[in-house]
Simulated assay, not measured.
Amino acid sequence: MKTSILFASLILASFILEAQTSSSLDTIFANDQKNVSLFFPSPIRQGIVGSQNFVFTYNREKEQYFGLLQAKPGKPSNLLIINANGSIFSYIVSYKEQLEKLNYFVPQSESIGFEQPKFTESSDSTNVANLFTDKTFYYERFCSYLLTRKQKIGSIQKRKNGIVLSLENIVFDKEELYFVIKIENKSSLDYDLNFLDISTQTRKQGKKKSIQRISQLPNFKYDVPRKVAEKEIKRMVYVLPKFSLSNDKMVVLELNEKNGERNLKLKVSNKYINNPN
Rank of each mutant, 00 (worst) to 15 (best):
M1F: 05
M1K: 05
K2E: 10
S9C: 06
I11S: 07
I16A: 11
L17G: 01
E18S: 15
S22F: 15
K34G: 05
K34S: 12
N35A: 14
L38S: 00
F39E: 09
S42Q: 03
Y58A: 08
R60F: 09
L68V: 06
L69S: 05
G74H: 12
K75L: 14
L80K: 09
N85F: 08
S87M: 13
S90I: 06
I92D: 03
V93N: 04
Q98K: 15
L99H: 00
N103D: 14
Y104A: 00
P107N: 00
Q108D: 13
G113M: 05
T120L: 15
S123P: 12
S125V: 06
T126V: 03
T126N: 08
T136H: 03
Y145L: 09
V164M: 14
V164P: 05
Y178A: 02
K186E: 15
S187D: 15
S188D: 14
L189W: 06
D192L: 11
L193N: 07
T200D: 10
R203D: 01
K204A: 12
G206M: 07
I211E: 13
S215H: 14
E230Y: 11
I233W: 01
P241E: 12
K249I: 01
L255E: 07
L255N: 05
L266R: 04
K267Q: 15
I273E: 07
N274R: 00
P276H: 10
N277Y: 10
